[in-house]
Design a binder for these strands. Structure first.
Length: 478
RNA sequence: CGGGGUGUAGCGCAGCUGGUAGCGCGCUUGGUUCGGGACCAAGAGGCCCGGAGUUCAAAUCUCCGCACUCCGACCA
């Protein structure tokens, strides 16, 4: 009976969102806990999602001239400490290597929490002339940050990411790079992950340690908490000076290059889960789904069904779609539930009745809609259906975002709105760190960003009543 | 790092007024089924999280660890 199968089901998101999230991570076979606290194993299905993300992003980075490199995983303490602000920011969460074999090391070595220092050190040795600029580097790797509390994808002690690092001849060029990469991320979220974002700048309190300015794309989850999607930083020549990176300029003077860095992580998988998932499990945007179409034969024992299903699979694969067929002897219901759990965007069913009618049944994961497709029109209809799922997910997420941005004119009002509606709360702000801290302490929200799209909501700061400088978004963040 | 919860078969749990283990699902084999989580039969599978104690005897009682998880603080 279905009742007995409940152990296989996941917790309803309305009942316990956190548990629902964890259930999906495990039941959709994305992730498994490792034997060291806070470390996770990305299982084949989870890793395949990451690979699809990587492939698309990597292509975009390369279009704008970036090249991939690989830096060492260990950083000598002395090197890490050269830039004061960065060390301070990361010090509490650095993991150290102190032994080499059975020998105590002269100097302890840090597992990279981020690689600004390695890139800077490298550049200090290889850069000579303005003619070599800009250097547009990126690396795909994992980093380690000794987090206190951990959750799959959202916060783990090791996570996989890409970190772009560039140096430029002028400040303007570096600033343009920072913005270009932010826009690259925004595009990726909206067009590939189907998650609309708010673009903006971080406050000084929230910016990356050591950065002159941090820009961010912020997104909204289904529980109306916010999540920082990706960030892009402008460093000025701060690291160049700290690490003595210099070049001879066009005017034959020694100059410091201007630097940027930008990163995005496997946390994006968490964003996809929480932006699109439902009580039947994961819902994947077709563009990153490891399996875009699952072919399910119905009554496979009947003559011709398996053959027809195989033929169908071959046809779909030939269209360039990522497809699989399930010929196992599990029941139809089991298969439906299984691929819904795994978030496969479209399921195609084919059985004796369909064969008779020269058709198949296509079912959308995002809204459950079933359509009978003639096998004659399949080649055009199926890609169209996947596009519709991609768009449908984006539209729903956009609707969620737009209906959860509320304006407030005081901390009390902001807090009330946060409790009632969640999402982003926008207010005017004087720019003072103290007011930001008050919103945290009294309103329970941190600043998410100062959006590029500014609105004039009033004249005064919602926290202190003094003249406001900007509009700012607040939220409860992951 | 503070506060709560939980660790028993792959998963979900029962057993906890001491006597070294059981249920459901899953798994294996055979058969019957098959348009939304099928059924029958026969099997396999357990240093009861770890370490100390108490006891003739510990999954069970006492300490100490560790892990997972949730809520805060901090962070991608």
């Amino acid at each position: 009976m279905a009742k007995d199968k409940k152990v296989e089901q996941i917790t309803d998101m309305e009942k316990d969102f956190a548990q629902w999230y964890t259930d999906i991570c495990r039941k959709a076979e994305l992730v498994e806990y490792a034997s060291v606290k806070g470390f996770t194993i990305l299982r084949p299905y989870g890793y395949a999602i990451w690979e699809n993300m990587q492939q698309i992003m990597d292509g975009e980075f390369k279009k704008t001239g970036h090249v991939n490199v690989a830096m060492p995983v260990l950083i000598p303490e002395s090197l890490l400490k050269k830039e004061g602000e960065l060390v301070e920011g990361f010090a509490p969460e650095v993991a150290w290597v102190t032994m080499g074999g059975s020998e105590q090391l002269e100097e302890r070595l840090a597992f990279r929490p981020t690689s600004e220092t390695m890139f800077s050190d490298h550049w200090s040795r290889v850069l000579h002339s303005w003619r070599e600029l800009p250097m547009l580097y990126n690396q795909w790797c994992s980093v380690i940050r000794w987090e206190k509390t951990t959750r799959p994808f959202l916060r783990s002690r090791e996570f996989w990411w890409q970190e772009g690092h560039t140096i430029h001849e002028t400040a303007e060029e570096a600033q343009a790079e920072t913005m270009q990469q932010l826009e690259c991320y925004a595009d990726f979220f909206e067009k590939v992950l189907a998650i609309p974002v708010v673009r903006g700048r971080k406050t000084d309190k929230e910016k990356f340690a050591g950065a002159e300015a941090t820009y961010t794309v912020e997104c909204l989850m289904k529980d109306h908490k916010t999540l920082q999607g990706a960030t892009s930083h402008y460093f000025g020549d701060k690291f160049s000076r700290a690490y003595d990176v210099t070049f001879t300029g066009r005017d034959n003077t020694l100059q410091y290059p201007f630097q940027t860095s930008w990163g995005s992580t496997t946390r994006m998988i968490g964003a996809v889960i929480m932006a699109h998932g439902d009580n039947n499990g994961l819902v994947l945007p077709p563009k990153i789904a490891p399996i875009q179409v699952i072919v399910v034969p119905v009554a496979a024992h009947k003559p011709g069904v398996t053959e027809k299903a195989e033929e169908l699979l071959n046809r779909i694969t030939a269209l360039g779609l990522r497809a699989k067929a399930d010929f196992s002897d599990n029941s139809l219901g089991w298969k439906c539930a299984q691929y819904e759990m795994k978030g496969v965007p479209v399921r195609v069913e084919i059985g004796p009745r369909d064969i008779e009618n020269n058709s198949c049944v296509a079912v959308r994961r995002d809204n459950g809609e079933k359509t009978v497709l003639s096998l004659d029109e399949l080649d055009t209809a199926l890609p169209k259906l996947l596009d519709a799922v991609q768009q449908g997910l984006y539209d729903a997420a956009l609707e969620n975002l737009n209906s959860h941005i509320s304006a407030a004119s005081s901390i009390e009002e902001a807090k009330k709105l946060q409790e009632e509606r969640g999402g982003f709360i926008k207010t005017m702000w004087c720019g003072d760190k103290e007011c930001e801290q008050r919103m945290k302490d009294e309103g329970g929200m941190s600043s998410r960003c100062i959006p590029f799209h500014q609105e004039q909501l009033g004249e005064t700061c919602a926290c202190c009543g003094r003249p406001a400088k900007t509009m700012i978004y607040w939220g409860v963040a992951y």
